[in-house]
Design a protein around this nucleic acid. Structure first.
Lengths: 352, 352
DNA sequence: CGGCGTGAAGTTTGCGCTAACGTCACACGG
DNA sequence: CCGTGTGACGTTAGCGCAAACTTCACGCCG
């Protein structure tokens, strides 16, 4: 069952292949008489013609394919971003090829390689590290690309990010208003822009609110996973003077903190308040309900795709180097006023 | 910055393009002297050669691309299936193009169309309905394809499914052992194979355990979403003789039942036990912990990819028409023995 | 010692498509 | 009445690659 080609339609209709090609191309159609266009369209329809994008791509050097580099599609943060991207790409007749890096540089390199072999017209990168070493290659090869959610340190590459600083500030404000003064931070990995941004914002906000944060109130996680959140929270809660609130750099770290709190026989928010970042799905169903910062995942994906398309269609015009998406505080049960002194009193006998 | 082609390497090394092509092709390499292979490989490396898969695909009619049709990547069931698929595809140098149907037939048709235009070597379909009308076309065009998770009604197409019947039976056994006799079912949409399979299994298991199930204990959902689960559960709990256990056809329906139970001021598992199917992530964190049937999502994706590759590489040999993956009961807090008579006593005064 | 198999390379072709270019007829203005 | 523009279509080339086919030299065997 060979596929129907332009040549077949040409034979059938008696026109030349290139006439058929034009008749089927909305942009070139105007150069032809209506009669020809009608006949060709009818024949194409009747014969079940389906354009071969590969051949067209080979000729035009445009595949209408974009690469989407993410750490792991299994991570609830990314599917909505993907849908956002596709919501703008699909109407434009693009498809995306998604690759997972599993946060491994080796995998990132090879996966970007497969995207390039496939001739993607551009890349949306949701897994960059601040000093990503493979990005230079892309820039040198003039492959249009955008980063989402995260940004590069020294690069003019357009980035679509969330208002990390604003979100952290809001959160700090809430905690302070609730009466907290001993506020700790579980920072994200410092090789990610979100990790350093949120940590810096944490420090800045603390200072703005007149809260002093000792260094040991800042725990750096190595990965954005629950186990790391748990480890960091355990360290914080084992301090002689444990914090009354833990502001985590993301939801998964916060979920890990929940576990640590439960393990130590403590209560959230009774003994410790906890906050997150991102507002992943299902969070509202998990007690006591994580107070967090909602980021617009769909919007981020959408915007990234728009920027990328701009880059592809108008390579000369400089794009917005940076889009900062607004965030929104979501209050749930994990924040309450501190129970003054209660935590220390309770802990002293138990812990060495 | 034009990409390096075989021709460039040929000019550089003095060999002919086809010699270069062979030197770079592991299968054809053996026909060349080591010296040539070495030189070509070195030049390719040095010049940063990257094969153009489009051109190769145009020539060979093999794109090493598969299409992955899913309802919605945002649905937690699918990312692990996707990873499973890619875990076998990636080492074979394939990529996948994922399309979301949003359970719409129009979208499904057009999305399958874009996959075909892209010349995918095969399709893994995780969104089929029992009488899917577009599948006939695929079979006629001899496009290799497999269904995952769901199956077609009248088709020889290979399917990778879970042991729905076994899972339901196990679940029924558990409920009966716990002392339940009034067991209701929130069935999945009957246009999906899982919907009818699980309903049939529910009836069969009930009979096997000597449980009689009145028709009004079976509520059919229209979509596999929480709101539908809630609607169905409300209907069941508003009966004069409400069930003591609700066996839902999937986790999301069960989560909806949780909501309905809470809304009615009832307690799970105190007043009603609830069970699900699939074992989506994060379920363990949602109280009281859904007792459910764990399906091997990664394994399903993996198996589907293996079957598809078999179909692609050996079109003549008939594949296993059906792979049934084992499932596992996961006990959590949502099932407890019925509080005999308590529910009725409590409800009578309140509900008409 | 001649023919022939074989190994190692080169030549050619064409996958399906698009874009640059060519042709031809007709209309229109000076 | 002829040149020239223009509209409508045909011709050609080539994107990058792989596979079929060709060439050529060498060695071996009868």
């Amino acid at each position: 069952m060979r596929a129907v080609t332009l040549k077949d339609i040409a034979r059938e209709t008696g026109f030349h292949v290139s006439t058929v090609s034009r008749a089927l191309d909305p942009r070139a159609r105007s150069a032809l008489t209506d009669e020809v266009v009608q006949k060709v369209a009818a024949a194409a329809e009747r014969m079940g013609y389906r354009p071969n994008r590969l051949a067209a791509g080979l000729r035009t050097k445009r595949t209408r394919t974009v690469g989407l580099v993410i750490p792991d599609i299994t991570n609830a943060l990314f599917p909505p971003i993907v849908r956002g991207v596709e919501s703008v790409l699909e109407p434009l007749d693009y498809v995306s090829i998604i690759v997972n890096t599993d946060s491994s540089r080796d995998r990132e390199r090879s996966q970007i390689g497969v995207l390039l072999e496939r001739g993607v017209d551009g890349i949306i990168h949701a897994a960059v590290e601040r000093d990503d070493p493979f990005i230079g290659d892309l820039e040198r090869q003039k492959v249009p690309f955008v980063t989402v959610n995260r940004a590069l340190d020294h690069s003019a590459a357009p980035a679509v990010v969330n208002d990390d600083a604003g979100g952290i500030r809001e959160m700090m404000k809430l905690l302070v208003e609730q009466g907290h003064r001993e506020i700790a931070h579980i920072a994200g990995p410092q090789r990610l822009s979100t990790g350093v941004e949120r940590l810096a914002a944490f420090r800045a906000a603390a200072e703005a609110f007149g809260i002093s944060v000792p260094e040991y109130y800042i725990q750096r996680s190595d990965l954005l996973v629950e186990t790391e959140g748990r480890r960091c929270a355990e360290a914080l809660l084992s301090l002689n003077r444990p914090p009354t609130a833990i502001l985590a750099a993301n939801d998964r770290l916060a979920l890990g903190a929940f576990e640590a709190i439960a393990d130590l026989g403590l209560d959230c928010p009774g003994d410790v308040s906890v906050t997150g970042f991102n507002d992943n799905e299902f969070l509202r169903l998990i007690p006591p309900g994580l107070t967090t910062v909602r980021v617009d995942k769909l919007g981020a994906g959408r915007r990234a795709a728009e920027v990328l398309i701009g880059l592809i269609d108008h390579p000369e015009t400089a794009p917005d180097p940076r889009t900062v998406l607004p965030v929104e505080l979501v209050r749930r049960g994990s924040v309450a006023p501190p129970r003054t002194g209660a935590l220390e009193a309770q802990k002293r006998p138990g812990v060495a």
